[in-house]
């Protein structure tokens, strides 16, 4: 856009510019067309196709899609008890991860935004962001070796008469919380940072102690930021199937079921029907939190 220089293009650019200036609707259209086109065609289009295929079946012999309408996949999802069990387990894991991340991230973000000296802040943010670049897989495997019977955890805990919890659901929750922690710290930090110091001072001047200020001013104003962070931690946990394979022992989550059905079983329609479960949950969640203003706090 900014390349409107040079003699001849300039006059052309000027004409375009003039038209755009006179017609804000055109300006808006120009701004929206490309990004909305991309998101709607590429993303919603792909999702739509996926949802459509949930009503199809695969041919038992050839493995090809049979494009005739059926509710069979949704019926299977609704009636097979293992899907229900696994879905509940997955939502539980995602919720637990979100709660743990919030509990750990809030004090850290608070310290970074309101307690640490300003020159230390940059350093702390760098320290929190750097792990995002270290491969997620490598970190999960590092945790695996820490949880194992001869791993760091056992080694560190044995002197206290404790032992590593081993692989399983608890290990999965711990590792997911670890992996997604920065995604919670950052929005909360940004939210706290935006809180004007003057507002806190006003609260203090009006006689509120720190605790009261926290409850009545800080907390309500940072809830959108927490919710924003929870969108990440919840959805990233809900869709994960790799971490649980690494540290989950024999546990399986909804992501594993989707992956097995699309991969080993070559049954895309059933996988698509299963995928509607996290889609419904996440879209519902987004609609519910839209009012809190969380989407502006991402």
């Amino acid at each position: 856009m900014s390349s409107a220089e040079g003699a001849r293009p300039a006059s052309f650019a000027r004409r375009v510019s003039g038209t755009l200036y006179r017609r804000p609707g055109l300006r808006l259209g120009g701004l929206l067309t490309a990004p909305l086109g991309y998101l709607v065609v590429v993303y919603l289009g792909a999702l739509g196709l996926l949802l459509m295929s949930a009503f199809w079946t695969t041919d038992e012999f050839s493995g090809n899609l049979v494009k005739s309408f059926t509710w069979a996949n949704f019926h299977a999802v609704a009636t097979t008890s293992v899907y229900r069990t696994v879905l509940i387990r997955s939502v539980g894991v995602a919720a637990a991860v979100t709660v743990i991340c919030t509990a750990v991230a809030f004090p850290m973000a608070f310290f970074m935004a309101k307690v640490a000296p300003v020159r230390l802040r940059r350093g702390l943010v760098v320290a929190v962001l750097t792990p995002l670049w270290a491969s997620y897989l490598v970190k999960a495997f590092a945790w695996r070796s820490m949880f194992s019977g001869d791993g760091v955890l056992d080694w560190a805990l044995t002197p206290f008469g404790l032992s590593s919890p081993g692989f399983g659901l608890p290990a999965t929750v711990v590792v997911l919380s670890y992996l997604w922690l920065p995604y919670m710290i950052l929005p909360i930090y940004a939210g706290l940072e935006r809180l004007p110091e003057s507002m806190l001072e006003a609260s203090a001047d009006l006689g509120a102690k720190a605790g009261r200020t926290f409850r009545s001013v800080v907390l309500p104003l940072t809830i959108p930021a927490v919710v924003a962070g929870s969108i990440f931690t919840f959805s990233l946990s809900l869709g994960d199937y790799i971490t649980v394979q690494i540290v989950g022992g024999k546990t399986q989550l909804i992501g594993n079921l989707i992956q097995t059905n699309v991969g080993a079983a070559n049954n895309l329609p059933l996988a698509a029907a299963l995928a509607t479960l996290p889609i419904v949950i996440m879209v519902g969640y987004l609609l519910a939190v839209r009012r809190t203003g969380a989407l502006d706090n991402l």
């Binding site: 695996r144 070796s145 194992s148 019977g149 001869d150 791993g151 081993g166 692989f167 394979q245 690494i246 022992g249 024999k250």
Partner: peptide, 23 residues
């Protein structure tokens, strides 16, 4: 058997790690 299973394995390295550590 599922009640007795500690881990279902799918790749060599993970299995070897677990046997080595006694998991």
């Amino acid at each position: 058997q599922n009640a007795d299973i500690g881990e279902y394995w799918s790749d060599a390295l993970k299995q070897v790690q677990s046997f080595k550590s006694g998991d």
